[in-house]
């Protein structure tokens, strides 16, 4: 037990002083795949009509991203340049098949609702993009850190979008009624246009925050 705790603090300590922490943090916030890089839009908009669906999709993507980054980083020295994209795609497709079968076995209801979009993780440009830009050029540890950050950042964005659309469009959160019977649901939010509009508004909010921050900095410099 004491050994375990020691190991854990050791792990945390390396997390804090290791440069690979940066690989982790950047995906989570600064280079968030959805809000900043705007990658992998299809699943982002298609399955975020409820918080549960969003989490299942985020989890599946996280798993595929971690597993393929690990494998790609392991075999990176033996893959010829000319066929690297095909190799990555086959690796990704294999893990997506695994994720598809796991979800069908564990949560058949959610699997049914997500339908073809689980299989479509294969063509999520976020995953292929990380393999090409990061995992195939870095050793295992930073590659895993990068994948974890990007995967969690993606899940976080999906959850934020799914939760806000479910609350506005259905008046529920994880299926629990929030407002009582007098609530008139804003149905368009859980329909396709709501996905575009909601993500647009979230991006607007981020742009606004950014603009305000810059204005404040400029004002502070002006005073000084």
């Amino acid at each position: 037990m004491a050994d375990q705790i020691k190991n854990k603090t050791g792990f945390l300590a390396t997390l804090q002083e290791n440069p690979s922490t940066d690989e982790f943090i950047k995906g989570l916030w600064r280079d968030n795949p959805v809000f900043v890089q705007v990658l992998g839009m299809c699943p982002v908009l298609a399955v975020t009509n409820s918080a549960v669906n969003a989490l299942a999709m985020g989890g599946a993507t996280f798993f595929v991203l971690m597993a393929s980054s690990l494998l790609v980083s392991m075999v990176r020295k033996w893959v010829p340049k000319a066929v690297r994209i095909s190799t990555f795609i086959v690796i990704i497709a294999t893990f997506v098949t695994v994720a598809d079968m796991l979800l069908a076995a564990w949560v058949p209801d959610v699997h049914k609702e997500l339908g073809a979009f689980i299989s479509l993780i294969v063509v999520n440009c976020l995953i292929l993009g990380r393999q090409e830009a990061f995992a195939s050029r870095n050793p295992i540890k930073p590659a895993l850190m990068d994948a974890a950050g990007m995967g969690l950042g993606f899940t976080f964005a999906l959850f934020l979008l799914g939760a806000s659309r479910e609350v506005l469009g259905n008046g529920t959160f994880f299926g629990i009624d929030l407002f009582g019977p007098q609530f008139e649901p804003w149905v368009v939010m859980i329909l396709p246009p709501g996905g575009f509009l909601m993500l647009g508004m979230i991006l607007l909010f981020f742009n606004w925050m950014q603009a305000k921050k810059q204005a404040r900095r400029a004002a502070a410099e002006g005073v000084a």
Partner: peptide, 22 residues
């Protein structure tokens, strides 16, 4: 306005188009 330009604007245009296609 500057903060609307770019992806945010494209998403909102797409949302309105999608509303029309409904």
């Amino acid at each position: 306005p500057g903060i609307v330009r770019g992806t945010a604007m494209n998403l909102i245009i797409a949302g309105l188009l999608s509303l029309g296609f409904m």
